[in-house]
């Protein structure tokens, strides 16, 4: 269970990105975070694996205080939390295989890995992870030679290498077209069905309705909406836009457009 207690983040320039945010996530949930641009979604997700140090508050994960973890302990926590990014954040010039193997760095021998040496088991795991997201045949290409959807799958494979118990996904489909958005979220949904906890920020109402088991809405760093699966299903576009603002759109509309 992940427990966020009174989390506050104030950036060096004085921006208050999160204000006293508290919520809990049970193991196996698919929690979707919605909110306007600048509402603090990325900040929240990055606080959970400490890419950003929160200013105040606590994050307790299965009894471990992530906010207090330092160096080796922090790395142990991090390697159990996979992360997927809007812009994939692959190392573009490295091969797909190297990118995927990089997901194993938290487990690998710190010195051996500097020379790109990984154990045969790790390599096998990488091949399996690529197989799982359906791009085994791309393993030796350079990451930037792949399409956007394929790159995001490499991102997922990299996260899977961590054998994580939780995945943080920061707008994983925002730079993909609607068809790909569904397939990528389908991949995450499949993982979720196998028991993975997923925290994901999203923009599209119908994706939220389809995949979320629970939703929280952020506005100016505060939680302004909490809803269960049933609540979301019942939500109209109007209500959605209230949390979300005018930017919200249905993927379906875009989908029809793109399929002509």
């Amino acid at each position: 269970m992940l427990e966020i207690r009174n989390l506050t983040k104030i950036y060096d320039d004085g921006t208050v990105a999160l204000k006293n945010v508290s919520f809990t996530v049970e193991q196996g949930e698919f929690l979707i975070i919605i909110g306007l641009s600048g509402s603090g979604k990325s900040t929240l997700l990055r606080c959970i694996n400490r890419l950003i140090d929160p200013t105040e508050g606590q994050i307790i994960w299965d009894g471990v205080d992530i906010t207090a973890a330092e160096s080796a302990e922090l790395r142990t926590v991090r390697r159990q939390i996979g992360m997927i990014f809007q812009h994939f954040n692959l190392v573009k010039r490295s091969s797909v295989m190297t990118n995927v193997l990089a997901g194993r760095l938290g487990y690998a021998d710190p010195w051996q890995s500097l020379w790109h040496r990984f154990s045969p088991q790790d390599r096998e795991l990488a091949i399996k992870a690529l197989g799982r997201v359906g791009i085994s045949d791309q393993a030796n290409k350079r990451a930037d030679e792949l399409s956007g959807g394929q790159q995001q799958r490499v991102g997922i494979a990299r996260a899977l290498m961590q054998e994580p118990r939780m995945i943080l996904a920061d707008e994983p489909v925002a730079s993909l077209d609607p068809v790909l958005a569904h397939t990528i979220l389908g991949d995450l949904d499949q993982l979720n069905k196998e028991g993975m906890t997923i925290l994901c920020s999203l923009h599209y109402l119908d994706l939220v309705q389809r995949y979320a088991s629970r939703v929280i809405g952020l506005k100016d760093g505060e939680i302004v909406y909490r809803g269960s699966r049933a609540d979301i299903r019942a939500m109209t576009d109007e209500q959605f836009k209230q949390v979300y603002g005018a930017e919200a759109i249905r993927v379906a509309a875009g989908l029809e457009g793109s399929l002509g």
């Binding site: 990055r46 694996n49 890419l51 790395r75 142990t76 926590v77 991090r78 390697r79 159990q80 939390i81 996979g82 992360m83 990014f85 954040n89 692959l90 190392v91 573009k92 490295s94 190297t98 990089a102 997901g103 194993r104 760095l105 938290g106 487990y107 710190p110 890995s113 500097l114 991102g155 990299r158 290498m161 961590q162």
Partner: peptide, 18 residues
Amino acid sequence: PIEAIQATGATRLQTIVY
């Protein structure tokens, strides 16, 4: 990519190399 590698639990040196 630096953020992504850090998020996997890599050390600072590993992050630089990868």
